[in-house]
């Protein structure tokens, strides 16, 4: 367990010292979201309608943008080799790295989401559920993305491959994430969607360490 904490601590420290990377995802999130009103016109009722969907899709793309650096730097400088040969199980090391990735990418996105909600004139009654759904959903994005990042290590132009691998797998999280917020906005219970998101999160918490470790071992052969 202390090994996990060490990895999270190191990755957070690295992210803080290279804070440009962390800002990139948030700025991308806000700027891309702000483009939509220009593209589809400033009709308030229309913007209100599409707000949850746009916020989720843009969050998903922002996470995608940050995935390549998840393992690549460690792979290139030999740290991954040393991690694999440390007494800490590789599965736990991956969980630590994904947790640090979420803390530096997913969490800032959640913090910036109210800004986009206001820009889109979203009904503030749905904001709580939107944030809760993102709290459950963005870790899923990091977890699924980690498998894609691990699989494309060592492949030429691997970073371009990640979206192709990962985007289709993001669809369930997108559906339930938007579904929860839409339900709350329509005055229905968001509970079923949130429960499905939570279930998806639990499943990925098991699959990602196993699949990721297998992919990293393969990459280091």
């Amino acid at each position: 367990m202390s090994g996990l904490v060490l990895i999270v601590g190191r990755d957070l420290r690295l992210a803080l010292r290279q804070s440009a990377d962390a800002w990139l995802a948030v700025l991308f999130f806000v700027l891309t979201g702000a483009l939509f009103p220009f593209g589809i016109g400033p009709e308030p009722s229309l913007l209100k309608l599409i707000a949850p969907g746009v916020i989720w899709v843009v969050a998903l793309l922002a996470v995608l943008l940050s995935l390549e650096r998840l393992f690549l730097a460690d792979y290139e400088d030999g740290s991954l080799e040393q991690l694999l040969l440390s007494p800490l199980p590789l599965e736990l090391a991956i969980l630590g790295k994904v947790l640090a990735h979420w803390l530096t990418t997913g969490l800032p996105l959640i913090a910036a989401a109210p800004l986009l909600a206001v820009l889109f004139n979203m009904d503030m009654a749905g904001l709580g559920v939107l944030l809760l759904a993102m709290l459950l959903g963005t870790p899923i994005l990091s977890l699924i993305g980690a498998i894609g990042a691990a699989l494309t290590l060592g492949a030429r132009r691997g970073g371009v491959l990640i979206p192709l691998l990962v985007l289709p797998l993001y669809i369930p999280a997108l559906i339930f994430g938007v579904g929860a917020t839409d339900a709350a906005l329509a005055g229905l219970s968001a509970r079923p969607d949130l429960m499905l998101l939570a279930a998806l999160l639990l499943v990925m918490l098991v699959i990602t360490p196993l699949a990721g470790a297998a992919a990293l071992r393969q990459a280091l052969e």
């Binding site: 190191r10 740290s79 080799e81």
Partner: peptide, 14 residues
């Protein structure tokens, strides 16, 4: 074991 390969695993910002 300690394995020392071709790469030094030194982080530039630490």
């Amino acid at each position: 074991l300690h394995y020392l390969g071709h790469l030094d695993a030194v982080k530039p910002v630490l």
